[in-house]
């Protein structure tokens, strides 16, 4: 009987996996530009959802206007974070910068608590909640939105990084910061752009998942953790790895919940992650780092 649920597991794994993939992409973009782990990535996700809720339910804007506005608002938060604490930091030590993002994440989270309160909030689904039944699986319309929008973001990002001048410049910075500066790329501007971009992607993830899972001011932590795990699983900094790592983590979680036990589903996912790391120390698609003296 558990086998008949397989398609359903597959669908829900794909859904949460898409969200993890988006968050992992956000982690990867900032990492490539700066080398740091942005602990506030989950707060970007939460902020996107909360702003969207305010725009649609308090101001009453229609969905298709509120969506881009909410994304822009979180991009602005990313921008502020970079020109504020990150750029002002009197250190270029990775650990210090990472701990500054921890501080930023606490600050954003607590500010959100004062604005939106502690009760979880939700958004109505984008287009009804009549599930489509496909064989043994019931698919919510929102799931299709999630898959579609994730796909769109991934396609746009890969276009951005492979076809546009700015995207190529960002890749150059990721490859070699000093080299990029030498050929005239504004490294600081690329760092700023990476925070803005990550904010935007995080916001998209938050907005599309909220109709299914609800959102509260503290929900960003767990989402960020999963996104980070996904990015590590795929190979930190690799865009392809982020997407596949996200989907894989989503699948591991749902299958773990189905076949092992739902209480231990996270433990199961992280156990597999550890095993993967022991076998492949730089994730599935990570580049082996060459050490120089």
């Amino acid at each position: 009987m558990i086998w008949s649920q397989l398609p359903q597991f597959f669908v829900s794994g794909l859904t949460s996996g898409s969200i993890y993939a988006l968050i992992a992409l956000g982690f990867g973009i900032i990492h490539n530009a700066t080398g740091i782990v942005n602990f506030a990535q989950g707060e970007f996700v939460m902020l996107g959802a909360m702003t969207m809720i305010s725009l649609t339910q308090v101001i009453g804007l229609p969905l298709f206007i509120a969506f881009p506005l909410a994304v822009l608002a979180v991009m602005a938060v990313g921008w502020l974070m970079e020109i504020g604490p990150i750029r002002r930091a009197r250190s270029d030590s990775i650990l210090i910068l990472v701990m500054i993002t921890v501080g930023a994440s606490i600050t954003i989270r607590e500010t959100a608590m004062h604005i939106w309160g502690k009760t979880p909030r939700t958004l109505p689904p984008f287009s009804g909640d009549e599930p489509l039944v496909l064989g043994n699986a019931a698919i919510l319309p929102q799931t299709l939105w999630i898959l579609g929008i994730t796909l769109l973001v991934v396609v746009l990002l890969s276009f951005f990084f492979s076809r546009t001048m700015v995207g190529k410049a960002m890749r150059a910075v990721a490859e070699n910061r000093r080299g990029a500066a030498l050929i005239g790329i504004g490294v600081y501007r690329m760092t700023l752009l990476s925070f803005v971009l990550s904010g935007g992607i995080g916001a998209v993830a938050g907005i599309i998942i909220t109709p299914i899972t609800t959102m509260s001011y503290s929900a960003g932590i767990m989402l960020a953790l999963k996104g980070f795990a996904a990015a590590i699983l795929g190979g930190y900094g690799s865009m392809k790895g982020a997407v596949l790592g996200g989907l894989l983590l989503g699948a591991m979680e749902t299958f773990g919940a189905g076949f092992v036990s739902s209480a231990y589903k996270d433990a199961f996912a992280f156990l597999i992650l550890l095993l993967v790391l022991f076998i492949r120390p730089t994730g599935l698609f990570g580049k082996e780092e060459i050490k120089r003296v």
Binding site: P85, R90, G103, A104, T107, T111, H114
Partner: peptide, 18 residues
């Protein structure tokens, strides 16, 4: 506001005393 201030102070210390 305790946790909020904690976050701000943490950031401030790290920014100015790295």
């Amino acid at each position: 506001y305790a946790a909020l201030l904690y976050g701000v102070i943490l950031m401030g210390v790290l920014v100015f005393f790295p």
